[in-house]
Structure formats: C-alpha cells, structure tokens
Design a protein around this nucleic acid. Sequence first.
DNA 1: GAGGAATGTGGGCATTGTCAACATTCGGGG
DNA 2: CCCCGAATGTTGACAATGCCCACATTCCTC
Lengths: 182, 182
Amino acid sequence: MSTFGGKTAYHHGDLRRGLLTAARALLHQGGPDAVTLREAARAAGVSHNAPYRHFPSRDAMLAAVATDGFLALRARLDAARSAAAPAERLVAIGRAYLGFAAQERAAFRLMFGSALDRAAHADLREAAEAAFAVLRDTVAERGGDAASIARETVRAWGLVHGLATLVADGQITPEAADTGLA
Amino acid sequence: MSTFGGKTAYHHGDLRRGLLTAARALLHQGGPDAVTLREAARAAGVSHNAPYRHFPSRDAMLAAVATDGFLALRARLDAARSAAAPAERLVAIGRAYLGFAAQERAAFRLMFGSALDRAAHADLREAAEAAFAVLRDTVAERGGDAASIARETVRAWGLVHGLATLVADGQITPEAADTGLA
DNA sequence: GAGGAATGTGGGCATTGTCAACATTCGGGG
DNA sequence: CCCCGAATGTTGACAATGCCCACATTCCTC
C-alpha cells in the first residue's frame, strides 16, 4: 500500500515516526501528562493498541521523545562550540543551552523533569551523557589539573543548568538568565 | 467519636493532615505519579471521595504538599542564614539548599518539577517566593548597585538551583555539588 | 506461492479523577 | 433539650487510560 515517503512501509508507512511526532505535539500543548498512548495513536490514525508494536510502554515512548531531545541539544551545543573562538566557547555553549531551554521548554522539562526514570532507559542515558560530554570537554581543553577541571565542570554545568531550568519553568526571563552567564 | 489527638475532630479527626501525610509517603516511595487521590484516601482510612471535602482536585493536594515543602525550605534557609557570619551567609544558604535537595529528593522534584502548574496555585507561588526572598535579601545586604545585585542574585540562584537539581535527579553526588559551591 | 514474522485491530480489565445524590455527625439557637 | 443547617464522609457511576489477550492482515523470504 501507500509506502509514500517513510523508510520501511508496512501497514502504516512509518508508525514509529508518526507516533513520536504526535507525542511531541502533545508534549508542546499540555506537558508530559498530556502525552498519552491512546491520543498519540488517534493522531496517527491507528488503533489504541498499535503503539505497542513500537514501544513496550508509554514510558518507553516518552523516553524516545526525550532521547531525541538530547540528541538535538547535543547538536546545538556542538555547533555553538565549533563556531566560537576557543576563549568564548564556554559562554557560547552556555548560551546555546539556554536557548534550547527557552525555545523547547516542554522538551527540556521532559528531559530533565521527574516524569522519566533516566536510569531505566539506556538510550536516554547515553544521549544525555553525550550532550554533557560537550560541556565537559570544553572545560577540559582550557587546561588545569584534574581536580580543578572537575570543579569547574560542576560549576559551569550547575550554573547553566540552573539558569536553564529557571527559564524553562518560567521563573526568570531568558534575558535575565543571559546576564548571569557572563 | 474518637477525637484523639487532632485539632477539630469531626468524623475523621483531621483528614486534611492525614491525607497530606499519606501523600508525602507516596511521594517518597514512587514519585509524583504515585501520589493518587484514591490511594491517599485508602491510607487515611476513608472512602475514595472524602478527599474532595478538603482539596478541590488532585492537583490541589499535590500543590499543598509542595507548598509545605517550600515552607520547610524557607525555614532551613533562614536558619542557615541566621547561624552564619555575614561573610559566609551566601555559602551557608547554598549548603542548606543543597542539603534540602539531597535529603528531600522527592519533595524537591515535586516542588520544581513539571508535575505542577505553579501559576495556578497562589499559596504555592507565595511560599516559593518567600523561600527565594531569603536568597535575594542575603545577596542584597552585601551591597552594590541594583544592577549588580540583580546579576549576582541570578548567578547565585542559578548555580545553587542547578547543583541542587542535578543532585535531586541523581546526576551528581552531593559531595560533587558541594565542591562547586565555594 | 506458501508460510512465518511483522504489524495492526478489537475487546476487555483494573485503576484513576471527577461528578451527583445520599447519609451521618457536629454545633448552635429555639 | 432537641432540632436544624452546615460540615464531613459514603456509594454509585462515567469516561479515560495503560496494558494484556486473541485474532486479522500484510510483508518478506525461501
């Protein structure tokens, strides 16, 4: 049948992708709690049980969305790092991190919120670690002994992540967060 | 009947308090999603609809738990501030903040996680603001012009909150967070 | 082209939040 | 002292959800 654009085209075409897209939309509109297996299935035009052929549970679907979020975040951090001169790299990464939190509020809250058990999903953990690695490597290339690198990494991560969280939660404006970076 | 220890003793004694206690226990065990109206009612020994005489919705019950959390946090920050010499106050508050996040992980995640719409609950917002005020006032008493006070408040809040979030989410150890404070 | 695997469907069950109607208990005014 | 309104708690119901089971359809390989 159809087999229009997707990769492998079985019955639906590419249900997995369709479900993830629907899930992202639901996430944007109503937060993590609004992301429901049945609603995503409805949006994709399949029965309420079809999603189980692609995700073992609702949690797994949420985790997949979050994993994609971490991949996107890592790409952004990497791009910012590559585009900046060595001396400005840390601040550039911080800005990129804040930009992601501000523009992808819902995804950011899912990725770091308590709705998900990151320990239970290996992909998720890997993707999160990969994003973090960009920051750690950037701190490391500034030099110093191991202890001071570890300390500065924690400080930089804490500051940026805290500001980003506050922005994503609507407690401070993106502009206010930016003044805290320099 | 009974009227054992509680304040006003109607049918149950003090259902509101009983429900909040049960809710806190559920929160500890299984996170925000495990806090269910019906389970809290069960734990308190009442029917599944009794909670509605004290909370208009499940969200309101969650908000009440979170509000209590912010009151406790504020008390801790205040105590830390009072006990420290002026020059060490900021760090003392930071340590208290981190201590709360580490010891009351579940509550902290509820308070700052996305499970709750802080804008929809006035009490919650007030309690959160009161806790934040302790930090802001401490920064302010160090002197400086308004702009630099605002900047330093954002920086201090962002750093401490970020470290606390990472601890509460289990991404760094409390000890690692502590090294980032000084 | 036949058969097994991948994918989607329909029905069903337990749980949950919420609403409505009814029952019980409390406290104050005759 | 008792009676009545208000506060509190109970029972029953409904829709939605996550998940399990048995069954149907479609794909791909041999």
